[in-house]
């Protein structure tokens, strides 16, 4: 069974008398271990979709099953626990807690569920090594570069061993070189540790690395590589040459 099953997900916002529909019947399945990119132009509904998948927001229609659990009308605390146990979040603005050190930021999701001690310390240190932050554990977020901050966020998303990591435009605030490094890092984590990633972007270069691209337009999924390629082409303003396979490892 798929890790994620979305059927006919709808989401509309009421703004006074007008109703804005952000998602109009999204069907999507994601298997464990996949590395999926959600692409689409601005306002197409990427963030809305990821928020619903992340149990941060409730759909106004459709059904959603995560890891065999139907996410229906659960209360806030249930959803908080589901997020804490099953989902890791990586944000566009990093969203680190400024008064906490790198170590404390990384361990935060575990601390709130009462974990602590030597075992946690070791786990944090191992993850810090994976994301290349071993020397920065005692630093505060404002002493780090953007790329380093996003590495902290990645480590924080992974520390609980989540089934799914959601990243909403994680590279939008990074320069292209750093973006590539962050994407490489996530790809490596997907390949080596089997972490399931679902992330949104409108950066066409990500296509180069994606194993699976889901295109979203105006609140509906337009599947297939053709649509994705068209997306990329349009956004890039270039020909299809861009779609040539590219080996990320070569660059290192």
């Amino acid at each position: 069974m798929a890790l994620l099953q979305l059927r006919g997900i709808e989401k509309s916002y009421e703004l006074g008398k007008t109703v804005v529909t952000a998602l109009r019947g999204v069907d999507l399945e994601v298997e464990a271990g996949e590395f999926t990119v959600v692409m689409g132009p601005s306002g197409s509904g990427k963030t809305t979709l990821l928020n619903i998948i992340g149990c941060l927001d409730r759909p106004t229609g459709g059904s959603y099953v995560l890891d065999g659990e139907a996410i229906g009308d659960r209360d806030f605390n249930d959803l908080a626990d589901i997020r804490n146990r099953k989902i890791g979040f990586i944000f566009q603005n990093f969203n680190l807690i400024p008064v906490l050190s790198v170590r404390e930021n990384i361990e935060f999701p575990c601390v709130i569920r009462g974990e602590g001690g030597a075992e946690l310390n070791q786990r944090v240190e191992a993850i810090a090594r994976d994301v290349g932050l071993t020397d920065f554990l005692h630093h505060k977020p404002d002493e780090l570069s953007g790329g380093q901050r996003q590495r902290v966020a990645i480590a924080r998303a992974l520390v609980t061993g989540p089934q799914l990591v959601l990243a909403d435009e994680p590279t939008a605030n990074l320069d292209s070189k750093t973006s590539d490094q962050i994407i490489d890092l996530m790809l490596a984590l997907n390949r080596d540790k089997g972490v399931t990633f679902l992330f949104s972007t409108h950066d066409p270069r990500v296509m180069e690395h994606a194993r699976r691209v889901v295109s979203i337009h105006d609140g509906v999924i337009v599947d297939g590589t053709a649509a994705a390629a068209a997306d990329v082409a349009r956004m890039h303003g270039a020909g299809t040459s861009f779609l040539l396979p590219y080996d990320a490892a070569e660059r290192r």
């Binding site: 908080a80 997020r83 944000f91 999701p109 709130i112």
Partner: peptide, 16 residues
Amino acid sequence: TREIGTMMALGVRRRT
């Protein structure tokens, strides 16, 4: 506010 949102996303309950 955003920090509170982040904490909630990471699983902090309202009471906390």
